[in-house]
Nucleic acid binder design. Structure first.
Length: 480
DNA sequence: CGTTTTTGACCCGCGC
DNA sequence: GCGCGGGTCAAAAACG
């Protein structure tokens, strides 16, 4: 009976396979699905086999084929169809997953390719590259946005009266602590002045990503996160151990020092301090690079920084780069550069808050401002504008756990920033600008508008793609 | 009892 | 050189 059992199991599973119209491919995921299906079948089959074995007692082995037919006939049709549905679903799942992997790899190679172009272009320049990006998006479609460029030239902003709740803003700034302080102060002053001007001219500005890339030689990676948070620290998924506390000058709130304890010897540290102006705002500054895989809960934050690295396509930690962008894989998983992210923007004053001297400090590197002027309802209102939150249950969803307020927002910002399409769009825009600049000579920095291309526009799929429009040069906003 | 937090001391870089 | 401020160390205390 043992032999028969085995044979029947095999035959049944093969029958299922043969019912698949598509030719069987040797693919890991499909095979896994088949194996799983087989194992599911086994339980059912064993029951059938017991009956069949009793009925077939005394019969010779040659009759096994007819017995299988009998078994198959007796197999409950709903079970079959249910299993087939399940199998199809799993195959679909596998396809989706495979597509995600392929897309990621494709995007990665595309970024590498484009970066090599950028690197070539920049190798002819002696100046530190400075790239300013200003990106905006809203859930309703195209939204042009005022930009600030290298020379802080301000381009006009079109009228917009869309629902602010559907808007998302990011401000991404990279700063150079290696600068001479005086020079930096002057630049800050200039920048603040121009930002104020932008704010005045475009009081209704909704959201913007402003990226300022200036390659700092041999600087430590620092990421500051501003969130409204009632708890003592931001729950970022990592384990931290407090090793010190100080009263910093200018802020009566003590600054706490934490060390990452996820892995022994991890050099990552963070400082936590309440904002002087708004005690509900928690400023968390991360420094260093983890020497271990991040916990799932911490991946979102890291992916934001990773996205920033993609924005910049720079690796300041590479001494060979010497101010020249050098795209390395090592720069991707963890933050190696400084940037400032400010998605505050659903209402004003967004950029004003970003440049508040109390926390606008280029030497501090990245400031990821996840605060919103209003209550947490603002944050929730922002959520629909994030097109990248996976909705399919089979998508690797790190946002499935309900979170409140800023942490939730942070993760969604991360999701957007880490979107490969978004990165590719940014990379393409930078490349385009670099090429243009190479031909026309140095000019003002690039200004880009990022928007979500929805179906009927440049993409036909149901998912949104990121499109960056360059506003520099002719300033006609023609998509790159 | 092991781990974490607290807190004063110490170190170091920077400006004067 | 000195003072100041930021950051870290490490012993003691607190905690689970």
């Amino acid at each position: 009976m043992g032999r028969e059992d085995k044979k029947m199991e095999i035959d049944l599973s093969l029958k299922i396979d043969s019912q698949e119209e598509a030719p069987r491919k040797v693919q890991d995921d499909d095979e896994r699905a088949d194996v799983k299906l087989d194992s599911q079948y086994k339980e059912d089959v064993v029951e059938e086999e017991e009956d069949a074995a009793m009925a077939a007692s005394g019969e010779v082995l040659e009759d096994s084929e007819s017995m299988q037919l009998s078994l198959q006939d007796n197999m409950k049709t709903e079970e079959l169809s249910a299993l087939q549905i399940e199998m199809n679903r799993m195959k679909e799942e596998n396809k989706v997953l495979r597509r995600v992997v392929e897309q990621t790899m494709k995007d990665f190679h595309e970024l590498q390719r484009q970066f090599s172009i950028v690197q070539q272009n920049n190798s002819q320049k002696n100046n530190d590259p400075q790239v300013f990006l200003s990106l905006s998006s809203n859930g309703s479609g195209i939204q042009e946005q005022a930009m600030i460029s290298d020379t802080r030239k301000i381009s006009p902003l079109k009228d917009h009266d869309t629902d602010k709740d559907n808007e998302l803003g990011l401000s991404l700034r990279l700063s150079d602590s290696g600068y001479d302080r005086q020079q930096r102060k002057e630049e800050q002053k200039q920048e603040i002045t121009n930002l104020m001007e932008v704010q005045r001219n475009h009081l209704n500005s909704l959201s913007a990503i402003t990226s300022h890339v200036a390659v700092p030689p041999n600087r430590k990676a620092r990421v500051s996160v501003r969130t409204r948070c009632q708890s003592a620290t931001l729950n970022d998924g990592c384990q931290w151990r407090k090793y010190g506390q100080k009263i910093a000058k200018g802020n009566p709130c003590p600054r706490a020092y934490y060390r990452c304890t996820v892995a022994p010897g991890c050099p990552v540290r963070k400082q936590v301090q309440r904002c002087l102006e708004d005690m509900s705002i928690l400023i968390t500054t991360y420094e260093g690079t983890h020497n271990h895989p991040l916990p799932v809960g911490a991946t979102a934050m890291a992916s934001t920084a990773s996205a920033a690295a993609s924005f910049m396509l720079l690796d300041s930690s590479n001494p060979l780069s010497n101010g020249i962008p050098s795209f390395t894989q090592a720069s991707l998983p963890y933050p190696n550069n400084a940037f400032l992210l400010n998605p505050s923007a659903s209402s004003l004053p967004s950029n004003i808050r970003t440049i508040n001297p109390n926390y606008y400090d280029p030497s501090k590197g990245v400031v990821l401002d996840l605060t919103t002027p209003g209550s947490s309802s603002h944050n929730n209102a922002l959520l629909p504008s994030f097109p990248l939150i996976p909705e399919k249950p089979n998508y690797p969803n790190i946002f499935s756990t309900p979170r409140e307020g800023q942490e939730f927002l942070a993760e969604n910002v991360s999701a957007m920033a880490s979107d490969p399409k978004f990165r590719v769009a940014v990379a393409a825009a930078i490349t385009s600008w670099m090429n243009k600049e190479n031909q026309t000579g140095p000019s003002i920095g690039p200004c880009f508008v990022a928007r979500e291309a929805v179906g009927g526009e440049s993409v036909s799929t149901s998912t949104k793609n990121w499109v960056l429009e360059s506003l520099s040069g002719n300033g006609n906003g023609k998509p790159n």
